[in-house]
Design a protein around this nucleic acid. Structure first.
Lengths: 194, 194
DNA sequence: CCTACCGATCGGTAGG
DNA sequence: CCTACCGATCGGTAGG
């Protein structure tokens, strides 16, 4: 009995994530979600309190996954270029592990209400600062050529984040291979023979 | 009289672009838009036929700007690395020229209905193919090291497109300087001393 | 998990 | 550009 309830909750969460990704949060109605599952809209409310609760779970669940990745990277003492490679690999793992949730996390967070919205923004800033610190480390050690760290970190993040739109779990590239190619591109650039 | 009407239409278009960017298309009501301008919602309809018409103008206006940039780049015979630099510069110019419209173009196009939706998608594909062709050119000439062109072109585009979120017209970096730094980063990577 | 329903709000129209 | 309004749909609740 408890298991069935949990299964239903999981089903609702997954379908909501998919619909929020495909149509956007605001354009997805609870009736859409209920119909996709095969129940009435009102029945959803025995499993959740509000539509926004679904969005909150997705956004903060992803944020947690990114923080776990960060903590793993920061637990090691590594030279900046190697550390950046590892950070890229871990980030790619998080994104490819749930591309639907990643898409919602990236595009729909602005529909959060306060105080969740402010909390979310500060968490995102914290993650940017973690990557910026690696860049600064490598710059200070003369390993990185970075005129503007803010520009570089946002470029890096956007490069990593569009993966949700492109990655296919059944494609021929594994997350690890993707991460390696992305890291090579970021670290060495496109020009051959240096 | 005709001038006043045109001014009002421009004002509506600009305010709609701003609101669509900030709240998203679906979450912006015509009453929101009217209130932001200082008229009644019903009055909007003497200047436009539908809410979606506003979205269409933004999306296809930006698409046109990107195609103009592409045609300028393609009118010149240049080695791939130089051509890519120019393509980056022109792309940055288009994005920084209207950051609000760029944001809507990038995130809200999925709310277009058919047939506009399919037309939009094919235009975007066309632009990706233009950039891919430059990458292939440089790869064939042994100038670029690119294991996977699809991954590289999407990484490149995402790097360029997040500018709308970061660029400030009154900031200390001019579009040209931003483009140069981005091009350096893409072509040479972060690692120093090659 | 359902039926029945609430008040609010939506895009858009009629008629001036 | 306004008042007045349309039918449709929204998130959510009551009560079973």
């Amino acid at each position: 009995m408890a298991e069935l309830l949990t299964e239903r909750k999981t089903q609702i969460a997954e379908k909501a994530t998919l619909l929020f990704k495909e149509r956007g949060y605001a354009a997805t109605s609870m009736r859409d979600l209920a119909a996709a599952i095969g129940i009435e809209a009102a029945s959803l409310y025995s499993h959740l309190r509000s539509k926004e609760e679904l969005l909150q779970r997705i956004c903060f669940g992803m944020a947690e996954a990114f923080f776990t990745a960060r903590d793993q990277v920061n637990s090691l003492q590594l030279p900046a270029p190697i550390k950046l490679r590892l950070a890229i690999e871990k980030h790619v793992e998080v994104v490819t592990n749930d591309v639907n949730a990643s898409a919602v996390f990236l595009h729909e967070w602005r529909h959060l209400s306060e105080p969740e919205l402010s909390i979310f923004k500060s968490m995102r800033r914290e993650y940017e600062e973690y990557l910026t610190a690696i860049l600064q480390e490598g710059k200070a050690a003369g390993q990185f050529n970075i005129p503007n760290e803010k520009l570089t970190v946002l470029t890096l993040l956007s490069s990593l984040n569009w993966l949700y739109d492109w990655y296919r779990p059944d494609g021929n590239l594994q997350p690890h291979e993707i991460a390696m190619q992305l890291a090579d591109q970021v670290l060495n650039g496109l020009i051959t023979n240096k």
